[in-house]
Amino acid sequence: MSIPDDLPASDPAVRIHVLSLGGTIFMTGADGEGAAPGAGGADVVAEGLPAGVEVTHEEVANIGSPSVRPGHLRAVLERARAAVDAGARGAVLTHGTDTLEESAFVLDALWDRDAPLVLTGAMRPSDAPGADGPANVRDAIRAAAAPELRGLGVLAVFDGAAHLGARVRKLSSRSVSAFGSVPAGALAIIDDAARLLQRPAAGEMHAADRPLVRLLGRPQLPDPLPRVPVISLGIGDEGEILDGLPVGSIAGLVVDGAGMGHVPAGAMPRLRRLVELGVPVVVATRIPDGGTSTHHYSYPGSEVDLLASGCLMAGVLPAHKARLLLQLALARRLSAAGIGEAFALFAS
C-alpha cells in the first residue's frame, strides 16, 4: 500500500501509535565517547514520519535493550491494544537491537489483534553519520499502515525488509542490515509500499486464531517469568553444573546442544533426573540453520535418546527463544502435553 501524500492527517485510518523502549535509535555518542540514552525520541520519530500519516508517540522506557523486562512488554501489549482498539491502523515499537528478537517473539505469542505491531530500531546512534533510525521508523510506520500485513502478528522492520516476529534473528552485531528471518527469509520488502515475498498460512486467519496465540491465550505477563536457565554443552562438559541442584530451584531447563540437538552421553542421567522430577527439559541447537531433529540419530545423547527420556526438541527455535516459549507456557500453567504442543509448532 502506498500512502498518498494528500491523505488527510486527521484520517483515523492512517493513525499509527508509536511506543518506545529506547535503544540505540534514541542514543547519542557519535563523538567516540560511547553511545548512551539521549532525549531525542520524539525528534527521531518525527524525522522518520511518512507524509500523510498521523502519529502519536508514547515513551514506555528509555533503556538499553538488555535491560528490557517482561513488565515493559506487558505495558507495550496493553498500550498497543488500547491504541488499535481506539482506531489506530497499527502500532510501532522502537526497541534496542540486542534483544529485539526476544521481545518480538514474546509479543508475537501474545498479540491478538489484526492490526500490525511492528518493532524497529537502529544500529547507529541518532547523531551518527548515516544514522539508520529515521528510515527504519518510516518503514515501520508504513508497514503498520499496510493492509497487506494485517493478521500476520508482530513484525520487525529493518533496512527495508519486514520479518515475522517469531522468525526474526539478529545476524550481525555491526551491520545496519543486521536482521534476517530464519529459516524462510524476509516476509516483505518495505519502500513506498509493502510488497509481500511470501504469505504464511497463519496469515489467512484472524490474529487471535493463530495457533500459539490460541494456545497461550491472554495471560497476564508476569515479571519475573518462571526461572528457566539455558546451559550450553559441548566437548568436556556433561552438565556437571546441574549436580546438587536444589529441588524446585528451576521451573525448566533449555540445553543449547550440538548438531541436530545432541548432548554428551554423560549428560543424559542428569537430564533424565530433571524430567523425572517434573522439570521440562528442552534441547535446542547452536547451529543457526536447520533446527533440531527427531529421528536422524539414535546414539546415547542423540535426539532419539533425548526424546525417549522425556525431553522436548526446540525445532527451529534457538535456545534463547526456546527459553521464552517454555517460560510463557509455564506461566500459562500448560500441561506437559500443552507444552509439547507449543514446541510442535516450531518443529523442523
Rank of each mutant, 00 (worst) to 15 (best):
D98S: 05
A39E: 09
D289L: 08
L107N: 00
H320G: 15
R218V: 15
L212D: 13
A80P: 01
A336C: 14
P4S: 12
D192F: 05
A329S: 04
F105R: 00
D11E: 03
P264L: 05
P125H: 10
A267S: 10
A267E: 07
D31I: 08
P318M: 05
I25S: 04
V247E: 07
A267F: 02
V168P: 00
P200E: 05
G185A: 08
H320W: 03
L196I: 05
E47D: 11
R167V: 15
R174G: 06
P318A: 04
G29S: 04
V281T: 03
L107M: 12
M1S: 06
G160L: 10
G203W: 10
A143T: 02
P211E: 12
L119G: 01
G121E: 04
L325Q: 08
D5L: 14
A36F: 11
S177D: 09
V182F: 08
I287A: 06
E59S: 12
A329V: 09
G32P: 08
V106Y: 00
V76W: 07
G96S: 06
G340H: 12
P70V: 05
L100I: 09
L77H: 08
G266A: 04
G239A: 07
H296D: 06
G338I: 06
A128C: 14
D223Q: 10
Y297M: 13
V118W: 14
F179A: 03
G217F: 06
G48W: 00
G32H: 00
D139C: 04
V255H: 02
A9N: 07
S20C: 05
L110G: 15
G239S: 14
F346D: 15
S173Y: 11
T294E: 13
G310K: 03
D132Q: 03
E33W: 05
G32M: 04
T24W: 09
A75P: 06
P147Q: 03
P50C: 01
E148S: 06
V304G: 08
L225E: 14
L196W: 15
V213D: 00
P300T: 01
A36S: 13
V228H: 03
L221W: 14
D112L: 08
A207V: 03
L171A: 02
T120V: 12
G290P: 02
G23P: 00
L77W: 12
S232H: 10
R270V: 12
G121R: 04
N62K: 07
G180S: 02
P66I: 14
G151C: 11
A140N: 01
M268W: 14
L212K: 02
P50A: 01
P300V: 01
R74A: 09
P125E: 01
D237C: 13
G151Q: 13
L216W: 06
S2F: 10
